[in-house]
Every structure is written in structure tokens, then in C-alpha cells.
Simulated scan of single mutants.
Amino acid sequence: MTGTIFSYTSLLPLLALSSVFATLGNSTPIMKRANVPTSKAGYNRVWYENWGHKDGITHNWVFNLGTSYPGQVAQWGTGEIQTYTNKAENIKIVNKILWITPKKKTDSKGKVTWTSGRLEGTRANKWACADGKKMVVEASIKLGSAGEAQQKGIWPAFWMLGDDFRTRGYKGWPEIGEIDIMESVNGKRQTWGLIHCGMYDGQIPIRGPCNEPDGKGGYVKGIGRGLWHTYGIEIDRTSKNWKNETITWIINGVRHHSITGSQINNASAWNYLAHQKMFILLDVAVGGGFPNGVEGGLTPYSTTIDGDSVGMQVDWVAVWQST
């Protein structure tokens, strides 16, 4: 979700995926929202968000506002067209559920503009997997149920960035590491789980340990929309050799694709991805390189709608460390 505006453009046609491998799965959705789990065998829950704090969103999160980090790459680095706000029409809590809703407005001259919402964890909320341990980061999420034709260009995501990104003044992508736990574009019944790392100089074709700008990872088909799913990643550092450490994507308890240190084959890049502290982000973008690359054209379209049926709901977020 971050980087330069060239990111993801070489994903066209994405489904060929020369740098990303596919996983077909029938992950069972959660038909009703469930309480944030209080236990997980072999783990301690070290942090969770259930949106029940008296100070609301700002208890654990800060709003990303506008069209970029202060003084940094425009359009959030990916060519997105929305402006992020903290208005209730874009981001709010209802019955202990976070709603992020893209909104479209047309002025008297016919110009269309979009707004939406984006959060990142506060400076205190950042985590790393300890040496010899495992860490799981997961969230219960419902994606908008509108048809694909109405969601072209809509891009919800649950992801993480290396905390060094903030200490450097929001600079250093992709070296600081990015783990996309769940991304979905254009209303597809499909989600992506990717990593970004190493260096990227804005050139095509893909290059570096994480094949930038595409990243490395995979996707899962058959993900029902308008239903609750639990999306997560597990970082496993129980091996004594970093090349055997893994990052695995999990949906509703089903393990899908994994990336190993040996596949990255770059100790510095893997260190940022699997060893260093990261913070969590939640957002719904509009337009940009990823939905454009998947669609094979510039999104959103005139037929793309706004509102809750193309937004994202988040029931809870949790971080677990193995005992």
C-alpha cells in the first residue's frame, strides 16, 4: 500500500503472476461477528482492539489525513485518488465495529472527488516477533458486498509497515519492510497477502529480493464478501537459522501461502520483515496502481459506487506472542 506511484503497475495481467503464486482455498467464513478471542493455544494475547474504548478510535490509532504523509510522495505513493479524512461519513465506530466508507462527490461542473478513511497504530502500538518465538497478527473483517462492476477501484487493506518508516520521517520504503495481511481490489472474491522489502528505484521490470514493485506472496480465491473472515499472518522465528524462518498467511484458521527467509535470501531485508517492530494500518483506498493493474485500466469508473456496500468493517484486531 505504500511506495512510489509506479508500484503494482507491472502486475498487469496480475493473474499470470510471474512473481506471485496463487492459492486456491475454501476458507470457511464467520457468518456472524464473534468476540475477540481471549485465548489461543500456545500463545499469549499481548494487544487487542475491540473498539469499545471511551475515547474511541484515538485510544489506539491515529488518523492518516489528506493525500500523503507530510512532505512525502503524493497520492500515498501508489497513485490513489482519494483524500483521507476523519469525518464520520468516512470512518466511525458503530456498535463496537469500525466502519471505513469511501464517499464520492460530484460538483456543479461534473468533477468527481473521493474521500475515505485510513488509520495507523499509535507510536506505542508496534510489535516484533521475539527470537525463537512466533507472533500472530489478525483481524476480523467484513468486505463490502456490492458487485464487482460497482467496486472497480475500491481497495481495502489490513497491513503492517516497519516502524523505522516513522523514525525516518516516513521515508525508506520498501527497505523498512511491509507485510500486506489482506488486500482486496475491485470487489473480487479474492484477497492478496504480499510482502515488500529491499530497494526499489522506480524502474520496471521487477527487481530486488521482494521483486519490487510487485512484492512477493500469493492470493486466495473464493473469499465471500459481506461475511466476516479472520485474516492473519504468523511470523515464525523458532528456527535457529533465519533462512528457515517463515511468514505465513492464515484465513479463518486455514494456513495458505508462506514466504521463507531463504526465498528472500537477503539477511537485511528479512530482518526488517520478520525481526523488527511494525505497526498496523487499516484503510480503504480508491484507485491506484494495484486496482488499475488488476483491471487493466484506470479506475475508478463512472459505475463505481460509494457507501457502506463498498467499504470495510473491522470487528477486532489482535496480536499474539507464543509462550
Rank of each mutant, 00 (worst) to 15 (best):
I5R: 11
I5F: 10
S7F: 11
S7R: 07
L11I: 04
P13V: 03
P13I: 01
S19G: 14
S19Q: 15
S19P: 15
V20T: 05
T23N: 08
T23C: 09
S27N: 15
T28I: 12
T28Y: 14
T28H: 11
I30Q: 12
M31G: 10
K32E: 14
A34C: 13
N35F: 10
K40D: 05
Y43E: 00
Y43T: 00
E49M: 04
N50T: 10
N50Y: 02
N50I: 07
D55T: 14
G56T: 06
I57H: 05
N60A: 05
V62C: 06
Y69V: 02
G71V: 07
V73L: 04
V73G: 01
G79S: 02
E80H: 03
I81G: 06
Y84P: 01
E89D: 13
I91C: 05
I91H: 00
I93M: 09
I93N: 08
K96N: 15
I97V: 14
L98F: 07
L98P: 00
W99P: 02
I100K: 00
P102W: 04
K104M: 10
S108P: 07
S108T: 15
K111Y: 09
K111T: 14
K111V: 10
K111I: 15
T113K: 12
W114T: 09
G117W: 00
L119A: 11
L119F: 12
G121D: 03
R123M: 10
A124C: 07
A128D: 06
C129Q: 02
C129K: 00
C129D: 03
M135C: 04
M135A: 04
A139S: 13
S140F: 08
L143D: 00
A146H: 01
E148K: 14
P156F: 06
W159Q: 02
M160S: 03
T167W: 03
Y170G: 02
M182L: 07
M182G: 01
N186K: 03
R189P: 15
W192K: 09
G202I: 02
G208V: 08
N211S: 13
E212R: 05
E212L: 10
P213C: 04
G215V: 01
G217Y: 00
G217P: 00
V220S: 05
G224F: 15
D236S: 07
R237W: 10
S239R: 09
K240Y: 13
N241E: 14
W242G: 12
K243H: 13
K243P: 10
K243M: 15
N244L: 13
E245A: 05
E245M: 09
E245D: 11
T246F: 07
W249R: 06
I251L: 11
I251V: 13
V254W: 04
H256E: 12
H257V: 15
I259T: 09
G261F: 03
G261M: 11
Q263P: 09
I264K: 01
N265K: 14
N266E: 10
S268W: 13
Y272P: 04
K277V: 11
K277F: 12
M278C: 09
V286L: 04
G288T: 07
G289A: 08
P291S: 09
N292K: 14
G297L: 12
G297Q: 12
L298G: 15
Y301V: 10
T304I: 05
G307P: 02
G311Y: 03
Q313A: 11
V314D: 02
V314R: 02
Q321P: 02
S322L: 01
S322I: 03
